[in-house]
Computed example of a mutant assay.
Amino acid sequence: MIILLVEFDSIFNRSTYTFGFGSPDIVPMFKRGQSYEHFYIECYNSNNEVFGNDRAHELDLWVERQFEKFLLNNTYKNELNKDKIIFFFHLLGIDTNGHSYKPWSNIYMKNIYIVDGIIQRLENLIENYYKYDQKTTYVFTSDHGMTDWGSHGAGDDTETLTPLLVWGSGIRSSRHTNVHIEQADLCPLMSYFLGLDYSINSVGHLPIDYLLPIDEDLLQAYLQNARQLLEQVHKQYNLLKQRLLFFKPYNLNEEKFFQRMETVEGYMNLYQIRDDIK
């Protein structure tokens, strides 16, 4: 028997500082390992998470109020002026109202409208604090969808397709673009924006469609993403080799791949390289 101990590694763990606000059931989950030292969290009381209460949107408004107080307090002024920091806002109201009142209800729609306003005001708070220095990237998404009867956890499109809005610093396209990616791709995408090393166990592919036009920095980021994924393949390769009595090696052609990545030909055909990584 082989027992694998997966090291907990994330963009929060690798950030200089992370400041998280929201649900006591969710936000502390990411405060593991070395991240204890630089992960500041504020959570509301778990007793406030009441299913069936049509005022669940107040949980989201709490996040906004606490963040505004946090900035005004100025206790973490030095930390807030470091590079590679993350603000993590977990807004639970829509999920709670979806379970209780279903996604087609007026209460659910009202919560969406409220969250729209919260996102706009949070952006304004951040931009005002940093004097519109154009160094902040915003990522808005959800961890799951929901059926019309207020459930999730299966494989239906309504449960697995989620929204993703990305704007701000590092978004190179000047036009609105519809880009479909896997949720796992968010990890290398945010690592790229922050200038962080990719997380050890990340299986995501850097979604270059958000990052056009192609330049040397993007090529190098994509190359490092490929190396990080390949290292995981090597690890699994060696584990299988140890476990199986009859093992047939698989030729990855990795030397040819990296040679092409480092040539002008590879630079001009990054989309072809992306297919090779997949």
Score class of each variant (00 low, 15 high):
F51P: 09
L92W: 01
D217H: 10
S202E: 07
V27P: 08
S174C: 03
N269R: 09
D83W: 06
V27H: 07
G195Y: 02
N178R: 14
N225E: 07
V63G: 02
M261I: 03
Y267N: 02
Y129T: 12
H57V: 04
D215C: 02
K135D: 12
I208N: 04
V27D: 10
R274K: 10
K82E: 12
L196Y: 08
P213F: 05
T263M: 11
N253H: 15
Q228P: 01
Q228W: 02
S100F: 04
S142F: 00
E42V: 05
T16K: 07
L59D: 09
E64S: 12
D215P: 02
I208A: 06
R243N: 10
C187V: 10
Y101M: 05
I208S: 06
P213D: 12
S100D: 07
G266R: 11
Y132A: 07
I112Y: 01
S169C: 12
E42I: 05
G20A: 09
I26M: 01
P249R: 09
I85R: 06
A221D: 11
Q236E: 15
Y250G: 03
R14H: 09
G155T: 05
Q228K: 13
K31D: 01
K278V: 00
H234S: 14
L245E: 13
F88R: 04
R121C: 05
Y237F: 14
Y192P: 00
F39D: 03
G170Y: 08
K110W: 10
H152S: 10
D215W: 02
D25E: 10
N225F: 10
A154S: 09
H144R: 08
N178V: 10
W62T: 08
P207F: 09
N73R: 01
F246I: 12
N48H: 13
Y101N: 05
T263E: 11
P207I: 01
Q224I: 01
L218W: 03
K84P: 00
H144T: 08
H234N: 15
L122D: 14
F39Q: 04
L91P: 07
F70R: 13
E216L: 10
E159Y: 08
N225A: 07
K131N: 11
E182T: 00
G117Y: 07
T162Q: 06
S169R: 14
E79K: 15
K135E: 14
E42Y: 05
I3D: 02
L92G: 00
T158I: 04
